[in-house]
């Protein structure tokens, strides 16, 4: 495989484009100059750091370090997944459920892919495990986040409907069924959309990367398909576990609706 390596000067030329943004913001008084600058600096710092970490990880090929890096990624993903929710479960429950669901989903799917499909030697080689996990986690995170968000907001909105069923003697899973359905659907729609639009509306980033790196398009497409299947599988497992665990926490063994387990509302919850 051959690819064209980039020089720092190449990047500097591209970075000029961002400076044009900053200039536009100044000229039009958009007040975005600072944000653009901060975001750009963050991106450069984070990616440079990632480069160092990845090089170190690739050179040691230790299951311990690969596992540790994976765990750190999952913990960050858990934090991101709950950060954007308007109404969270009180205490550590939202974080715990979101992170737990992603831990289960990402571990199952990544391990499956590494041991049966990609099969690097050794199977835990960080060069394969970490990028795979990253792609799977990024998408699962979106699904889990949307699923939990829909679960809590819909349970609040549909309080009287849920309690009407409970009061008539339905168990909590029956009473929660419409809410569970909505939450599952909103968690899974992004991946469904993305599968449906792939190749028509956009060329996926990983495939683009492989083609730029000199890979045969047919091979790049096979890899992309594998990744999409893995992402879809992980998102399904993650959303399902998170939504059902969330619903279990929003109800109790006496089949009551427990909205009191939601944290108090923040006035202006951050939205994506």
């Amino acid at each position: 495989m051959s690819y064209i390596a980039l020089e720092l000067t190449d990047l500097a030329w591209a970075a000029l484009l961002v400076l044009i943004h900053a200039g536009l913001s100044l000229a039009l008084q958009l007040g975005l100059g600072r944000q653009i600058l901060v975001a750009t600096v963050r991106m450069i710092a984070q990616l440079a750091l990632l480069g160092l970490v990845l090089e170190a990880l690739f050179s040691v090929t230790s299951p311990l370090w690969t596992g540790l890096a994976a765990l750190v990624m999952i913990l960050f993903a858990g934090r991101e997944a709950v950060a954007r929710q308007a109404r969270k479960l009180a205490g550590l429950w939202s974080y715990g459920i979101g992170t737990g669901a992603m831990l289960i989903a990402a571990t199952i799917v990544t391990t499956l892919a590494l041991t049966t499909q990609v099969q690097p030697d050794p199977w835990y080689a960080a060069r394969y495990a970490i990028p795979l996990l990253g792609m799977i986690l990024g998408n699962t995170m979106t699904g889990v986040s949307l699923g939990l968000h829909t679960l809590t907001t819909t349970a609040r909105r549909e309080r009287t409907a849920i309690e009407a069923q409970l009061a008539l003697g339905a168990d909590r899973w029956t009473a929660f069924r419409p809410v569970l359905r909505d939450a599952m659907r909103s968690g899974l729609i992004p991946i469904i959309n993305s599968m449906a639009a792939t190749g028509l509306v956009f060329i996926p980033g990983m495939m683009t990367g492989q083609i730029l790196a000199g890979a045969d398009p047919a091979d790049a497409i096979k890899y992309q398909l594998l990744i999409m299947f893995l992402i879809a599988g992980a998102t399904g497992i993650g959303v399902f576990s998170a939504v059902y665990a969330g619903a279990a926490r929003l109800s109790d063994a006496r089949h009551r609706l427990r909205l009191d387990r939601l944290a108090a509302a923040k006035e202006d919850a951050p939205k994506r």
Binding site: R159, I162, E163, L166, A167, L168, G169, D171, P178, R256
Partner: peptide
Amino acid sequence: MPAPRWRQKVAYLPAEPGWW
């Protein structure tokens, strides 16, 4: 008894009933 069984026997009608 399980809570759903209890509520089938001791049935509560709220002032503003819900619909699912």
